[in-house]
């Protein structure tokens, strides 16, 4: 350790420092995308009301994927919803996080044997936090958000990096089960 003089920080250190500061802001003002895919979405309004007050944590609903940080996948995901979900996920601005709420996102839940519902969400998009329970209680959902914040703090919530790193794997899975993501229907040919 040749000199104890204050040494200039290298570029990576500066970026890492900035990233930590950015993480502080990102975890204290998580904006969730108001995209309620399944039945677990009914848990979110109570989270915003005075009993649990999601705003305390700095979380609030935002209308469009561009503005939101957290994508809440609440409940079962049919093929059609999954296609729209993937398109929305790709529209979100980086760094973005996904919270899978409800057992349907974990292992297909009660619809595990249906022809229309997928069984495991993280095959298709990277999921940071799962909240188990067939309709988990609001506390559990809030707990999930707190876990997400802890993950961000410990720099482990890098699902979006995984999506970039092994994109082909995700894409292959998506093509396998969905056929094609961007479909044409009779109204938008």
């Amino acid at each position: 350790m040749e000199s104890t003089k204050f040494s200039l920080l290298t570029k990576e250190e500066v970026d890492r420092k900035w990233w930590e500061i950015g993480d502080f802001f990102r975890r204290n003002s998580l904006w969730m995308l108001m995209y309620c895919t399944g039945c677990c979405a009914i848990e979110l309004p109570p989270a915003m009301t005075s009993a649990y007050d999601m705003e305390r944590l700095g979380m609030g609903p935002m209308a469009t994927p561009r503005q939101a940080d957290v994508l809440l996948v609440t409940g079962y995901l049919s093929l059609k919803t999954l296609r729209r979900l993937i398109y929305t996920y790709e529209q979100m601005s980086e760094p973005k996080y996904v919270v899978g709420i409800g057992s349907c996102t974990i292992n297909g839940g009660i619809y595990h044997d249906s022809h229309a519902v997928i069984n495991q969400l993280d095959q298709y998009i990277p999921v940071d936090v799962y909240v188990a329970g067939c309709m988990p209680n609001t506390e559990a959902v809030m707990n999930g958000f707190v876990d997400l914040m802890r993950l961000i703090k410990s720099k482990k919530a890098n699902g979006w990096k995984k999506y970039h790193k092994n994109n082909e794997w995700y894409k292959k899975n998506q093509i396998d089960s969905l056929g094609e993501v961007r479909v044409k229907d009779e109204f938008h040919d």
Binding site: L79, G108, H115, N119, N173, S177, L178, V183
Partner: peptide, 26 residues
């Protein structure tokens, strides 16, 4: 959207087999 199997609500259609075939299970 883009259904490739026999009409799903027919009795002889086995959804579980379809689900196992198409969606990876945990």
């Amino acid at each position: 959207e883009g259904w490739d199997d026999i009409p799903p609500l027919r009795k002889d259609f086995d959804p579980r087999a379809y689900s196992d075939a198409h969606f990876a299970k945990r």
